[in-house]
Nucleic acid binder design. Sequence first.
DNA 1: CTCTAACATGAACATGAACTCCGGTTCCGA
DNA 2: TCGGAACCGGAGTTCATGTTCATGTTAGAG
Lengths: 187, 187
Amino acid sequence: MTAPERSLRADARRNREAVLDAAAELFAQRGDAVQMDEIAERAGLGVGTLYRHFADKRALLAAIIGRRFEAITDLARAADEAQDPWVAFETLLYGYLESAEADAAFRFALLGPEEPSWNDIAAEKTDFSEITERIVRRAVDAGRLREDFRADDFVLITRGAMANMTGAGAWRRYVTLVLEGIRGPER
Amino acid sequence: MTAPERSLRADARRNREAVLDAAAELFAQRGDAVQMDEIAERAGLGVGTLYRHFADKRALLAAIIGRRFEAITDLARAADEAQDPWVAFETLLYGYLESAEADAAFRFALLGPEEPSWNDIAAEKTDFSEITERIVRRAVDAGRLREDFRADDFVLITRGAMANMTGAGAWRRYVTLVLEGIRGPER
DNA sequence: CTCTAACATGAACATGAACTCCGGTTCCGA
DNA sequence: TCGGAACCGGAGTTCATGTTCATGTTAGAG
């Protein structure tokens, strides 16, 4: 769905990137609410060109979300490098949430009611989930996370934080509270 | 905005109730997504009648939300009756969340991006906030909630839980985790 | 340089949902 | 019982947005 990267005429490839960049920025700011016409204008193109590259709005959004998931997966890999399991966990958590804070489209995709149907991006997502699971396990094994903590709980906490991303940095206070609740015996 | 209850012709009052009931049920099930035509049909009326009683969809939604806030305020008052401050707090929290679980429109109003603009219902909301503040203070004073816990934190937690109300009762697990983080020294 | 398949364009179209409007109906006081 | 003010119904209007397609424009192979 995302792309036939190769064998595009030079102008076509350039335009494709322009669309992706414009869409990423606008979606990040205002989520699903942006209109196709706006994206086209921002990219300096006609709407028709958008539809040459992406079947519909959903597909464009999916491409953007997929991109973000790749970025976040890199971020998770980096977090996993840390020796201290707790540092790894915190780095992952905050990295993830800071990305979400910067991208309304991403939040939209994860919080919205149709979240399940975003499995277009399953590939990117499962990579991320795998790494998350590993990091969580490390922290649990080291006694830094409560023994019954599971990767699913990471999703719960994360969703909760994203729901508190209106206006000021209230979500940081929220995370502070939650971290207290999920800590294990070792500190 | 909500109502001139008195001096409505008998049929008008009856129809108004029918609209309110139909809207409450449909909004509770599917939130903002229901259409005015559906509500009219469910109430056994024409759309015109809806618009005779409510200026627009927003106003109708606001009326429903206001109703829910009244119910929840009663619930909070009841919780405040409990002698044990922790019991009062837990009763409030779970009562609130169970109401939210049963009403998608309510969640929509509180989670949506335009939450601030729902101040049409300020009256009902402030009553509730007052009681919440009292209950929180009691629990803090008794050492059952961490010393720095504020009523605002109740909102954070609550929003987080509502964001996890897709499908199964995942939000209960979530609350379990969070409660651990906000407890005070006394148990 | 030429020719054509690939590409771009944006006005026009399709869709869907909120809202209006006026002819017809009903309530209710006298 | 009767008059008319209040009320109802629902087809039609309006508006906002995603999507198409006939026409014009280029990249790039030969």
